[in-house]
Amino acid sequence: MEDGYFYIGQTPYLTRRIDEHKRRKAAEWTKIHKYEFLIDKFDAGLCTSKEAEALETEVTIRFMKEHGWKKVRGGNLSALDEKEIQRVMIKYRKKYAIDDDLYNVLVNELDDDMKVMLARYISK
């Protein structure tokens, strides 16, 4: 994507999907951040759609750690709304294996309303 943004996706039809991103007819993230080039691709082999989405989310989190969570979307972390991304990553920290460094960045960047909600969630 342009300006150092990244989108992680999975598809059995790579050429078609890249064309959709180029024409901004695909993911919301690629509608606001122009596609520039494919960084990498790999064959996940035969797997269920659930397994493919889990792998996509895992790669998304790895890219978030490397490039910053605000600059990457994909898998179950595709929302445009930053608050929603923070909420999901904090809530599902264990499920998505969010490490302490990324977790602390997410928590430190919460606005006051979200900090109150997090405090309530943790105290339950």
Rank of each mutant, 00 (worst) to 15 (best):
Y103R: 09
V72G: 09
L110V: 13
R93E: 11
D81G: 06
K71S: 13
M89V: 01
D101P: 04
V72R: 14
Y96S: 04
E84T: 12
Q86K: 15
R93F: 08
R87C: 12
S78L: 03
E82Q: 15
W69E: 00
K70P: 03
D99G: 12
V72Q: 05
K71Y: 09
K70F: 03
Y92P: 05
D100R: 09
E82H: 12
V72Y: 04
G75E: 14
R73V: 04
Y103S: 09
L110K: 11
N104D: 14
K94M: 11
R87W: 09
N108I: 01
Q86N: 13
K95I: 09
K70A: 11
S78G: 07
D101S: 12
K71N: 15
L80S: 11
G75Q: 13
G75F: 09
L110M: 15
V88Y: 07
G75C: 03
N108W: 04
D101I: 12
Y103T: 06
K91Q: 05
Y92A: 01
D99T: 08
L77D: 06
N108P: 02
L106H: 10
I85H: 00
K70W: 09
V107D: 07
W69R: 06
K91Y: 02
R93H: 10
K95C: 08
S78C: 01
G74Q: 00
R87S: 15
V105M: 11
D99M: 08
Y96W: 14
R93I: 02
S78M: 01
S78A: 08
D81E: 07
V107N: 01
G75K: 06
S78Y: 05
Q86C: 09
V72A: 04
D101K: 14
D100W: 08
Y92W: 10
W69G: 01
L110F: 15
L77V: 15
Y96M: 02
Y103Q: 06
L110C: 13
K95M: 08
G74W: 03
A79R: 13
V88K: 13
V107F: 09
V72T: 08
M89S: 03
N104Q: 13
V107T: 00
N76T: 07
E109V: 01
D101V: 15
K95G: 00
D81K: 13
D99F: 10
D101F: 13
L102R: 08
N108S: 11
R93A: 10
L80H: 08
K95V: 06
W69M: 03
V107P: 02
I85N: 01
R93M: 11
V72S: 04
K70I: 10
D99A: 08
K94E: 12
L80I: 15
D99I: 06
R73N: 04
L102K: 06
K83M: 04
D81V: 14
K71L: 10
M89T: 03
